[in-house]
Design a binder for these strands. Structure first.
Lengths: 345, 345
DNA sequence: TACTAAATTGCAAACGTTTACAACACTTTT
DNA sequence: AAAAGTGTTGTAAACGTTTGCAATTTAGTA
């Protein structure tokens, strides 16, 4: 109705009429593997391209009950870790013949539920879900029976769902050991945040590694929902106002670390001269010259493909099951961490 | 069929049977503004939530002929300018009651066409298209009659289509004037690239401003498709191998400039000490401390909302028309540009 | 040439909604 | 008490496909 320009789209019936066959034949000619005379098929193909026919996949989805569409719910595209991972997901999905619908939940439980409702309504064949809260699971639980779902970047070991995550507990341990190696004995963990198990595990890994090595774990908590550059900056500005009782900072996230870097720059604090700084995720901007942030790498591409594979498997199988996959993080040594600062340097 | 777990989804008919009414009544009860007895409506709502009913918007789209879905085609999410703009688009779209399907064209004409085919097939109500080539228009022309489309970040003044773009010609002029002000007389333009009118205009603006001010425009062309950090790095490495005949570099893109920065760092070239560097786009990472890239700002949020508004208007109107909107770029002074280097410094 | 098998095609139902229209049940009016 | 109106509900068609089944055509065989 709306938009008078295209009075009506060309449908399969138009093609049928023009080609002088029934529309069932057109349908068969268009989907390969169906018996149809080669000559009629050619004729139909010719008519299709002449009339500019684009098959209506909405109608197709309805009868087939599947859409070749996958939903991806991330807290925010505006987060390099997410967008890099999403990039790999999109790429891989296309290879497998799926399109993806990328949705932002904006770290809101309400939006997460709304998005599930939307995606289920659109008959997506499956969902890759990056939860933003520990309660996300409970919040969207009711949809899990309606659509195959794989949780990404979160640990739900006690829940009957499939998920992929990096071994975050091990990640921060790696970090502590690295700093220890550089001589640091007072390490501050920035951004402990119990919103997600992922962050809790990072903090726990830190705590554990400290205890194990006889260090007192130091924490500086975050009043922010999200780990943005801005949040990191604010936290660091606050933190730097106090006397310095640590020689290194471990940020729970690269973006947070980027904010710390900014605050340090403004305040004339040298990194790693005065303080060493370690991130987590290894977003691409951490590798930038001058930034050169040492960090814990999360295997983003692996996460994307593993998650996709799990999802496709769930979609294809007709029995109920769930599985977990934990990816191994690695340390990336760059120049934001140095030996503990000596006065005589 | 596939996936035995959800034997069948709850449909409107199930609700009708359970509530003891016809399914037309259920439909009416669910869409507001329809006449239906308040008591029956309550009953129906209760049944819906009890049975966990999620309306099937695929079926709905089919009968209504519209989907409340918008397509967005960008060359790559993995490009901060694109992902920042996409972020604003998604946000604004949601406010207007639309969902978006974000698709990567990977700078490929084939993918662009495929994506149009896909989106038209899915009955999206409109498309926001960031073309990656000058031929993109010709390539997808045939779809323009099938779906309302607005071109974004590209100039198509001679084509009968709607588009939004920044005044790129003016942008680089701004840059030249700024560098001139700092005393530079030998400015090198990096990444002239005639793939898009946008880039051509940037190069032309540069050329024009140089001529006007009696400078010889210097160019260093790009052998790359895309303006990635890596491309910038490669180009700069090549460039820095030659004797230096310029005092400032204008990169056609911030990401390119980031690559230059990396090469300079590796080669021990000081910025802005030895060379001044100016970017274009003002991606968020340009503002990072230590990076501090001077650049030309493209108003990304404005671009997003203007594009959306144009698209929604096109969708709503039933006459054929097209319009152009050109946004004004502004100079962002940071520390990657300095006065032309003096030996005695 | 007639008969059978194989290949091709058409018919019609189905997918889950929305909505014009008709039908019905109440009120209200006369 | 009948007529007219109002509010509510049901019936059925439509949206554009896919596909099982039956019908038809074509080719193959005796």
């Amino acid at each position: 109705m709306i938009g008078g320009k295209d009075s009506r789209r060309v449908t399969i019936k138009d093609i049928a009429r023009e080609a002088g066959v029934s529309y069932a034949t057109v349908s068969r000619a268009l989907s390969e593997g169906k018996p149809v005379n080669e000559k009629t098929r050619q004729k139909i193909l010719e008519v299709c391209s002449r009339m500019g026919y684009t098959p209506n996949s909405v109608a197709r989805s309805m009868v087939m009950g599947q859409s070749q569409l996958l939903g991806v719910i991330i807290p925010s595209i505006d987060n390099p870790f997410m967008s890099e991972t999403a990039y790999h997901i999109e790429r891989y999905a296309r290879e497998q013949g799926y399109s993806i619908m990328l949705c932002n939940s904006s770290h809101s439980l309400d939006f997460e539920a709304q998005t599930f409702e939307l995606l289920v309504g659109r008959q997506v064949d499956g969902i890759l879900f990056f939860p933003s809260h520990r309660e996300s699971y409970r919040n969207i639980k009711r949809y899990l029976t309606q659509v195959p779902t794989v949780f990404v970047n979160e640990h739900l070991s006690d829940k009957p769902v499939s998920y992929v995550a990096t071994d975050n507990f091990q990640g921060t341990q790696l970090g502590v050991e690295y700093l220890l190696e550089l001589g640091h004995r007072e390490i501050l963990y920035l951004g402990r945040d119990s919103n997600t198990a992922t962050h809790e595990l990072r903090a726990k890994g830190f705590d554990h590694a400290c205890q194990k090595n006889g260090l007192t774990p130091l924490f500086w908590d975050s009043p922010f929902e999200d780990t943005t550059i801005e949040a990191g900056y604010e936290m660091a500005m606050e933190l730097f106002r106090k006397p310095r009782y640590y020689t290194a900072i471990m940020a729970s996230t690269d973006t947070l670390a980027l904010g710390v870097l900014q605050a340090a720059e403004e305040l004339g604090i040298a990194i790693p001269g005065d303080i060493s700084l370690l991130g987590f995720d290894n977003i691409r901007y951490a590798a930038l010259p001058k930034i050169n942030l040492s960090t814990i790498e999360q295997p983003k591409q692996a996460m994307a493909t593993v998650a996709m594979d799990m999802l496709l498997e769930t979609i294809a199988s007709d029995y109920e099951a769930y599985s977990h996959r934990i990816l191994i993080p690695t340390l990336v040594r760059r120049s934001s961490c140095g030996p503990v600062s000596q006065p005589e340097r």
